[in-house]
Design a protein around this nucleic acid. Structure first.
Lengths: 220, 220
DNA sequence: TCAGCTATGTTTAGTTC
DNA sequence: TGAACTAAACATAGCTG
């Protein structure tokens, strides 16, 4: 039979589509490889079939190429997609899609798969994670030793607390897994907006170097 | 002249290479587009010329495709079950359940709905979020100003960098959204395991109170 | 499904303008 | 440079086993 010029639109027949996909995919990868070799170019190519299967090629390290790409484009969708349960859209496909998207966000919040993100995205993500962490800390406050809890929560007790706390500085507060240090006078550190100044270093004037994880984690 | 079959190896002539690059690149992108249309596939393609210029194509959101790619490859490496759920293989109810659970986890990671958690859970959550944050920071490192990046990545340049940094301390390093402060001598702060001591406070001995977010966020 | 097989359509190397 | 041409090389649609 005479071969026809084909129109570029989605092939209706599923089997024909699969066959064409297989053939053209191979062709595409071959071309990519040839271009890379002939012209000394770095190429990354990935193809998801309509069933979700991934085929990829990269002339060198895929991760590196992705990073390079991300750095050059800085395109981002992070923060634009409100990823909360969308009521009403209950189709199986929608649920699946949401699940996948949520998985991506979940992983990023836990610090995985970050290499695809550019600086902008990382900054946004950092903000979100920091916010979360700060709220975790805040939630922990009621579990803290009483003196601090009341200090923060009950303004009326502030003066009294201060008096009690005006003592030699050492180990005045050190809780929550050694993450918070306070050397100096806590009372002097409470600001009028509720945040806490955290003077680090001692008053002896010596060069007190602390090995720090987080130095001050009290931000409300 | 009779066209010869060409050998697939780097083209010697620079001009010929550029011409071929231009022609074949267009061809490649066209093929990618056609494959995407004909077979309903998602395709991402990026090409760096030997001069470093980026050309890219993606049939849908590049970021999403990259994320999807990263997700799938990491999964196969880890040998985990793909979270990309096949239609039909999971019941609607299962999906819903997973989605709800994931939403809860997501919210908690972002610091919402924490009041139901006890101290134990909060500590666990804190660990996870801190881990994520630390990896976010780590991922940001390559974006940092060169002096710091090379300091960390290229041991051989360490001494030279140090010399440059031995200057009056003020504003010696302060980048990435004011999150990192370094007062003192950076050179003295590099430890042999790659972490950075962060002496805060100055050498005058005065009570220098810094209002701190995180003081030291460099943790490797 | 899958692997050949062509006849044709498409790409492109080498060239000219 | 770059666009346009042309014929060879290549890819592949539709078919067959």
């Amino acid at each position: 039979m005479v071969r026809q010029k084909i129109e570029i639109k989605k092939i209706d027949s599923v089997t024909a589509r699969q066959v064409t996909f297989s053939k053209r995919r191979r062709g595409l990868f071959k071309k990519a490889q040839e271009l890379s070799t002939l012209c000394d170019a770095d190429i990354a190519l990935f193809v998801f079939s309509s069933t979700g299967k991934l085929y990829d090629y990269s002339s060198s390290s895929m991760v590196q190429l992705i990073q390079r790409h991300t750095q050059q484009t800085q395109k981002s969708k992070l923060g634009q997609q409100p990823l909360h349960l969308q009521p009403g859209s209950n189709s199986h496909a929608m649920l699946s899609k949401q699940l996948v998207e949520m998985t991506i966000e979940l992983k990023q919040l836990m610090g995985e798969d970050l290499e695809v993100l550019g600086m902008d995205d990382l900054m946004k993500l950092e903000k979100v994670v920091e916010g979360g962490l700060s709220r975790v800390w805040k939630t922990k406050v009621p579990y803290f030793p009483n003196f601090l809890y009341s200090l923060i929560m009950q303004e009326s007790e502030l003066m009294e607390e201060n008096a009690r706390l005006k003592q030699p500085a050492e180990q005045k507060f050190d809780f929550a897994g050694d993450r918070v240090f306070q050397q100096g006078n806590l009372a002097e550190s409470i600001t009028n907006n509720g945040s806490i100044y955290c003077p680090v270093g001692d008053k002896s004037g010596s060069d007190t170097s602390l090995k720090l994880g987080y130095v001050c984690c009290i931000l409300f």
